[in-house]
Amino acid sequence: MTDKDYQDQIRISDDRIDQLTKPIPSRDFRRAAEAIRSATPVTNEDQELVATYDEEDYVNLLLGFRYISEFMPRVLLEIRARSIDPHSGWRVENVTNGNGDHGLCAICEEPFEHHGMTFKVHHLDMHPGSFEGVCRECVKTYGPEEFGFNDELIEWVKKNPGVCETKEPDSKREGQRRELVDTIRRHANSTHYPRTIAELSPKWAEDAVGEWR
Rank of each mutant, 00 (worst) to 15 (best):
Thr2Gly: 01
Thr2Lys: 02
Asp3His: 01
Gln9Met: 04
Arg11Ile: 00
Arg11Cys: 01
Asp14Cys: 04
Asp14Glu: 11
Asp15Leu: 15
Arg16Pro: 00
Pro23Gly: 09
Pro23Met: 10
Ile24Arg: 06
Ile24Ala: 11
Ile24Tyr: 07
Pro25Val: 02
Pro25Trp: 05
Ser26Cys: 05
Arg27Ala: 14
Arg31Glu: 15
Arg31Asn: 07
Arg31Ile: 15
Ala32Ile: 11
Ala32Asp: 02
Glu34Met: 10
Glu34Val: 07
Ala35Thr: 12
Ile36Gly: 00
Ala39Asp: 01
Pro41Lys: 06
Val42Tyr: 00
Thr43Pro: 09
Ala51Gln: 14
Thr52Gly: 10
Glu55Leu: 13
Glu56Ile: 12
Asn60Gly: 14
Asn60Glu: 13
Leu62Asp: 09
Leu63Thr: 14
Leu63Met: 13
Phe71Thr: 15
Phe71His: 09
Phe71Ser: 11
Met72Asp: 08
Arg74Gln: 15
Leu77Cys: 10
Leu77Lys: 10
Arg80Ile: 05
Ala81Cys: 02
Ser88Tyr: 09
Trp90Tyr: 12
Glu93Phe: 06
Asn94Met: 15
Val95Gly: 03
Gly98Trp: 12
Gly100Met: 11
His102Ala: 15
Gly103Arg: 05
Leu104Gln: 02
Ile107Trp: 12
Glu109Val: 08
Phe112Ala: 02
Phe112Gly: 04
His114Gly: 06
Phe119Leu: 08
Val121Cys: 03
His122Tyr: 05
His122Cys: 02
Leu124Pro: 00
Gly129Cys: 04
Gly129Phe: 02
Glu132Phe: 14
Gly133Leu: 03
Cys135His: 03
Arg136Gln: 07
Val139Phe: 09
Lys140Trp: 15
Tyr142Pro: 11
Gly143Asn: 02
Glu145Gln: 10
Glu145Phe: 12
Gly148His: 10
Phe149Cys: 03
Phe149Tyr: 12
Asn150His: 09
Leu153Ser: 06
Lys159Asp: 13
Pro161Asp: 05
Gly162Ala: 03
Gly162Arg: 00
Val163His: 05
Cys164Lys: 12
Lys167Met: 08
Arg173Tyr: 07
Gly175Lys: 06
Gly175Asp: 11
Arg177Lys: 08
Arg178Met: 12
Glu179Ser: 13
Val181Gln: 10
Asp182Glu: 14
Thr183Asp: 14
Ile184Ser: 01
Arg185Cys: 10
Arg186Gln: 04
Arg186Ala: 10
Arg186Glu: 09
Arg186Trp: 11
His187Arg: 01
Ala188Lys: 01
Asn189Trp: 00
Ser190Met: 06
Ser190Tyr: 06
Thr191Lys: 00
Tyr193Val: 00
Ile197His: 01
Ala198Pro: 01
Glu199Trp: 06
Glu199Leu: 03
Ser201Met: 10
Glu206Ser: 08
Glu206Ala: 06
Asp207Thr: 14
Asp207Met: 13
Val209Glu: 12
